[in-house]
Design a protein around this nucleic acid. Sequence first.
DNA 1: CTATTCTTTAAACGTTCGTACCAGAAATTT
DNA 2: AAATTTCTGGTACGAACGTTTAAAGAATAG
Lengths: 190, 190
Amino acid sequence: MAGRPVDHRRRLELLDAVVDYAVENGFSELSWRPVAAALDVSTNTLVHHFGSKEHLLVAILGRLRERILAATAELLGAQHDLAAAARAAWEQTSQPARAAEFRLFFAVYGRALQAPEQFADFLDRVVADWMAALRAAQGPDVAPAVADREATLVIATLRGLLLDLLTTGDRARVEGAADRFLATLARPED
Amino acid sequence: MAGRPVDHRRRLELLDAVVDYAVENGFSELSWRPVAAALDVSTNTLVHHFGSKEHLLVAILGRLRERILAATAELLGAQHDLAAAARAAWEQTSQPARAAEFRLFFAVYGRALQAPEQFADFLDRVVADWMAALRAAQGPDVAPAVADREATLVIATLRGLLLDLLTTGDRARVEGAADRFLATLARPED
DNA sequence: CTATTCTTTAAACGTTCGTACCAGAAATTT
DNA sequence: AAATTTCTGGTACGAACGTTTAAAGAATAG
């Protein structure tokens, strides 16, 4: 038993660079050669580390989801209630600097919806991860059924608002709606 | 001045068939030849009517948006207030039979977000059309700023919930969140 | 040092892509 | 009937695609 060890760090380094590329240049027409050229490696370096195009796409979806979750998860954990967590999440995700990242997010999300078997892992986690975080933000005193309902509504509303913001760029209008939503959260009616 | 007239009906007939194809077979890898084979026409028939691949994609986005809007617009007009309109829209769009259509919707939406110049028309209308319908549903007595805010929130929330439903298929949970949202709409707090 | 495995690049393969060109059939006006 | 334009299908072309193969360099274990 000998030989050069597998370089997992190198794979992740390449993957992050590919995700960066997809953020900037789009996801729908991604192909080996332009990506490799942009990263200044040979196409076969990418093929070697990712195996096939299909595997690369799955890896991109996984890494992007991971990145987005990581950027907000710890922030959510520090909040004392759902309203605060939702506001923190909104303020984080609606930053102009992250717009391109979320445009890619919705692009890959839509693609995953049309190929659910190929991207099953993404679809399994893209809601569930946030559900877990937003359930936790409500503490142990909220009934599970209510916590689920509230978490679901927060995820849906924030994603829908983000979609609108990325579409229209009408920040004043979208922020107004976000404030309205976050205000109702702060004053639960039941 | 003579010659065979342009057959616009034929173009629309083909376009609808292409959209149907995209609903069933996905949008990301659409190409002339498989579509033409499925429609039992030559590839050149499609090229002749749509000009180029880019134009075809734009036409697909436009037609899909048009279809979805048409299926709901008149329904919304018949409602007497925003809560009723929102509920009608949700019941319409969350039908299992229309799931594939909305998976395509989110797929093309995501793609449009990463190529905003190419799909500017789609992006200009995909929010604005619904804004107009949901502003109208609130009647003339609601202040414009409030009507905008409420309409924005309804669009975002319903789209976010639909995204969740298509992702997880967890209808009970998503319906619960939808009911919660629609209930808050029925009892406006300010 | 040797053996082994991983990493990287270059070259080439067959396939599919979008598009252009051509010719015939169909539909309209004069 | 003649002229003109659209519609359709067959063929072909160059480009780009994903993938495979072969070979050289790098890093580990014995």
